[in-house]
Nucleic acid binder design. Structure first.
Lengths: 267, 267
DNA sequence: AAACGAGTTCCACTATGTGAAACTTAGTTT
DNA sequence: AAACTAAGTTTCACATAGTGGAACTCGTTT
């Protein structure tokens, strides 16, 4: 039941993937090596296997590795079927049009917030460049909205993983402050970001819950203190709530299309 | 030097990922099992490890597995640094505005075409739903444009993997026809899709090449026979060519920002 | 209450992955 | 050009990590 990383070869190989991804640029083998817990030969084998599998791409001109194409392919599937985004899309479109502000759709990935969709009221959207982004859970509207509805076991494990880095003077400082805030969110059914992550950026956020109370994700409307204030944002709650419920309802109906049909696989 | 899949545990685990992704919907363990080359206990361990690693997401209500959140995170990195998309974005915007038609940006992933960006002249774009999609190489404009500039070794291996499924009456039927077409594309520097993949859908496609002639990707402008014809599309070639060259030039300049700086990792 | 099927755990066996060290380039320096 | 150096790649004896048949648990059906 170990929750830690590990998971044998698979976990180790994926940690290499993370490492490459985190460099943010094509990276040389030797750069990976110092910064790796693995001995040279071992790392080398991982990197080779991952390259063969097109999870990494090797640039023979520059002798560098970068995340590979197979990832995008798999992520496409992940986005389509595992995330709320495809279901939520029309609802988010509608919401962003009504409120005329940026709308975010996020899910919880371990202890972090993973943005799966975004609608920018004014300009058309970015693609992977936005979806796939991650952010802290303890100081974003969507993050707190989701944490508020976790069961105690998961919650305490997740809280333990928060950095409580002080992004702004308003950032919550510790577990106690966060728990108080979560209780309030639970009571209200929605929460705010009071410039906790970026100065002058505020938002209202609402969880998306299954009928059973399992947290699916969260929605938020973001704006800035130069244009509006929290009291005005709070007026959007009914719209947010309507949208969240519509998404939850539709997610629920999403049953398996045809259970007695033989499937093809792609091994 | 085996090019086949395999790659030990890593390859096997990834083949399970593919399998899950290909289902296109949340899938039960037993569904994976019949359709898997692995014995029950083995498959189970893979699926567990992958779930721990958040490469798969387990839905405890339904007892199903779906592609997980970590994928999207990794794919975000892949899209940002390994694909041409971020570099190409402004160029594609410009091109789509000028030509007023749908523009695709694709790369080659093994033997298939991987779409990494798309600009729809009229309506704003879709996100992961478009990027990450894959298509056949032998019967799409971008596919053929890229095949045409592969070295013979790679090409013959890639051709061997084409299905030559007849999507339409115009679909190329075999290696011979394809090779003839590729020679023509090589001679002209650009190619067409003559309703080979979908009836009434036509396109002009142009490869994006490094100065050394390595193929980076391809661009295409797509339209339909109800609105235009190939001769008219061919008039767009100069614009396409300009865009392709601009992208190639910029990709080239993309050197490493700072080589002597210690890095942090995310193992 | 017995039979079934899906999902999970056990455990002896061995295939797989391990990593120190040796080797091979390719790029500098003397 | 020989001698050094660092990066990347291969080898191989060894043991850890993965394997899979079979047994078990749980929830559902007859």
């Amino acid at each position: 039941m170990a929750q830690r990383d590990g998971d044998g070869t698979i976990g180790k190989a994926l940690s290499v993937m993370d490492q490459v991804a985190n460099f943010g640029r094509p990276v040389k083998f030797s750069e990976l090596l110092d910064g790796s817990e693995f001995p040279k030969a071992t790392l080398f084998r991982y990197v080779q296997a991952l390259t063969n599998q097109r999870m990494l791409r090797f640039d023979p001109d520059r002798n560098t590795y970068a995340p590979g194409a197979r990832l995008m392919r798999l992520a496409h599937a992940a986005w389509e079927q595992s995330s709320l985004a495809p279901i939520a899309r029309p609802h988010i479109d509608r919401l962003s049009e009504i409120v005329g502000e940026t709308v975010h759709l996020a899910q919880l990935d371990n202890a972090q917030v993973l943005y799966v969709d975004k609608r920018n009221a004014t300009q058309p959207i970015a693609m992977f460049s936005e979806a796939g982004k991650v952010g802290p859970a303890y100081c974003t509207g969507v993050g707190k909205a989701m944490l508020a509805f976790l069961d105690e076991d998961t919650l305490s494990s997740v809280i333990a993983q928060q950095s409580f880095h002080q992004f702004t003077p308003s950032t919550l400082k510790n577990e106690t402050e966060l728990r108080a805030e979560l209780a309030e969110i639970r009571a209200n059914g929605y929460g705010f970001d009071r410039e906790e992550h970026e100065p002058s950026i505020i938002c209202v956020a609402m969880p998306i819950l299954t009928p059973r109370g399992r947290i699916l994700g969260a929605l938020s409307v973001t704006s800035s203190t130069t244009r509006t204030n929290l009291a005005a944002m709070e007026k959007l709650v009914p719209e947010l709530s309507k949208t969240s419920q519509a998404i939850a309802a539709e997610a629920q109906d999403w049953r398996f299309p045809d259970l007695n049909k033989s499937q093809t696989m792609g091994a």
